[in-house]
Amino acid sequence: MTQTIAIVDYGMGNLHSVTKAFELVAGDDAKIILTADPAVVASADKVVFPGQGAMPDCMRELNESGLKQAVLDAAASKPFLGICVGAQLLFEHSEEGDMDCLGVFKGKVVKFKPENMIDAQGQKLKVPHMGWNEMFIKQPHPLWAGISDAERFYFVHSYHFAPDSDADTVIESAYPSRFAVAVARDNIFAIQCHPEKSHTPGLQLLKNFVHWKL
């Protein structure tokens, strides 16, 4: 039977690209289902948890949509990919809106500190961190198979997750200081940037998720 991959639609952001990108890389190997139904999320073989916009809005929509428990259950039990705000929501607390999140990973979501935002040439670094930045491998992971060290992915965000320990940090980037951009533990992989907008290496990551076996 073909596996199913549920993309959780809780009303936050453009899910067209992430759906199309998964359909492209999955081919006949998986059925991609964009869904707002907790039962579909519960029965899917794998779950993708995206998110865009302000974190407090995302958290509110997640609560009101009735999808929160289905997301938590999936994160505890099956291959699970958090993207951007979907990844941030997996941490314990966010500075954006000073609110509690899902607490799957220890740590908090913080803003880029204005006083740090100067590059080596003394030029101001802008926030949002927007554009293509390098991905440095800290720990090997099956979802990074076929993706080179220092490959560039597309970012757009003003806040980023800061794990309490680096035990789960798989990938780091630098802006200007090093920060965690992908964390993974058991069945969960969470990434700050947008693989669905990161051309060949981004599509490779999504393809690896389609073929990921725990």
Binding site: N14, H16, K20, K197
Partner: peptide
Amino acid sequence: SQVFIPLTVGGGVRKADDVRRLLNAGAD
């Protein structure tokens, strides 16, 4: 559906609902 890099769309945007329709169509 075929090009997986960021897309910006401008021209004729008059209200927040126009923004929503463009984002839903796949604009970033």
